[in-house]
Amino acid sequence: MLLKFGIAGTALEVQGATEWLSPLRMVWAAWTPAAAVVPWSVDVLPAPDFSPPTAPLFETLPRCNGGVCTLLSAGFEGCVDATQGHAYLQAHPHATPADIGYFLRVTLAVQAFARGGLLFHAAGVVHREKGYALFGLSGSGKTTAAQLSAPDPVLNDDLLLLWPDSAGWTMYATPFGKRRGNVLSAPLCAFLRLMKASEVFVVPLPCGRALGELASNTPVMVGDPLCLPEVMARWEGIMRQIPVYALHFRREPTFWEVVDAELG
């Protein structure tokens, strides 16, 4: 079967087994690619001769160099090639739709970067019609902060797509995590680096620290030594338009009052 998937300027046309793609097509129905966006072709092929998977593909780190990313582990062999606009995954029949979804997430990260955007490890909260990207490594409190932001819409509590437009940068919802509401995008207003603390306050994040934090939260592409200089240059460009703060917060919803008071 064919699965068409896309966000902002990204688009994938995925050909593969119905049992793998049908569940994804149902869950990802909101992310139909725009007609004008040229898709990359992606083949997801069963490989009965492979040994069965011993772990989810999610645990396999992509090896990337110059926009060509490979994923190799028991039961899987995949490659995303930005230079060709093509990706393929051969997988043992025991592979699950979640494995395929992870491969498509890697493919989307590579395509987004190749086309001027960035996949970003962050929770996206739309507060007073402004988009805030709450970021930090695992355990920093993204999911907690997203939950505490109710009833504000949450584009995703783990991964956002950032895309440039004439007004600046827009953050887009992705299907790669939990969401609240049906909002699919919002103009990006600020980055908030989450810091668990006993007092709630917001301070600008020093430039060097901000650059390092943002770059290290750029999945897949931060691991590409040839693309990493451009990743960092792109973040520098974003930082010239979008401020980056450290949000020291505790487990209660009052932090938005502080954010509103400080950032308006």
């Binding site: 020093p206 060097g208 650059l211 770059a215 030594p225």
Partner: peptide, 9 residues
Amino acid sequence: EGELVVVLP
């Protein structure tokens, strides 16, 4: 801004 950011891919 006078600091060096070092990222290890």
